[in-house]
Design a protein around this nucleic acid. Sequence first.
DNA 1: ATCATGCTTAGCCATATGGCTAACTATCGC
DNA 2: GCGATAGTTAGCCATATGGCTAAGCATGAT
Lengths: 113, 113
Amino acid sequence: MAKHDPTLSRLFHALADDTRRGALTRLAKAPAPVTELAEPTGLKLPTVMRHLAVLEEAGLITSFKDGRTRTCALVPEALEPVRSWIEEQRAQWEARLDRLDAFVMQIMKDDEQ
Amino acid sequence: MAKHDPTLSRLFHALADDTRRGALTRLAKAPAPVTELAEPTGLKLPTVMRHLAVLEEAGLITSFKDGRTRTCALVPEALEPVRSWIEEQRAQWEARLDRLDAFVMQIMKDDEQ
DNA sequence: ATCATGCTTAGCCATATGGCTAACTATCGC
DNA sequence: GCGATAGTTAGCCATATGGCTAAGCATGAT
C-alpha cells in the first residue's frame, strides 16, 4: 500500500503527535539513527519505529540502512503542501475578518451552551 | 474535558480530515448552520456534529445557537500556532538543505529497504 | 395544538492508533 | 564463532475515531 502518500490528511495526521514532531525537530539539526531518535522519548524501540513509519509514509522523512543502523533524515519539501494549505486558509480567513465583527456581537449576546 | 484546548497536536489532528477541512474552507466564505455544513458531505448529522465538535475543541471554530439553528464560524487566529510551527520548521529545514546533499548521495547508493 | 425542522444525546460497531513484550535477524568487534 | 548491538516482526491490549440508527427536545410555522 502506498509507501509514500503525502496527502494533506496523512501529513496533518503525521504531525498530530508530540513524539513525531519531536523526531522532526531533532532531525532538523541532522540525520540520526533510530536508537538516537528513540532515546529522548522514553518509548520502546518498536513503538518509535511505528512513529517513524508514519512519518515516512507521509513523506516527511526518508531513511537508509548502513550496516545494522538505519539513518533517518528530513525530506524538507514534504512540508510544502501543508504550508501552502495553511497560507491559503489564512489569506481567506483574514480577508473576511472585518465581516466577522457582527457575528462576534451575536456570540456576545447569545453566549450559548 | 477542556472545551477549548488548542494544542498543536489537537490542531493538527483536527486538520487531518477531509470532512473537517472541507467545513473550514466552507466557513472561510461565511458562517453557516450545521445542516448547511452537513449537506455537501453526504454524512449523517450526528457524524457531522462530531466533526464540528472536534474543530471547536481545537479552537478552530466557534458556534452560537439562535433559535433552533446553530451557526458556526471560523476563529481566524486559531490557525496561528500551526502556521508558526510550520514556519519555524521550514526555516530550520531549509537552513541545512545544503548539508543534506552528502546524505542524499548515501541514499542513492545504498537504496535500502 | 400540532407538526415539521434542526439539532442533540445515547449507544452500537468496525477499524485505527499507540503502547508493550517476546522472539528473530543481521551486523560488528573480538 | 560468540556475544553484544541495532533493528525488525509478530501479536496482544486498551483506547480513540469515524460512521450509523434511534429516540429525544426545543422552536418555528400553521
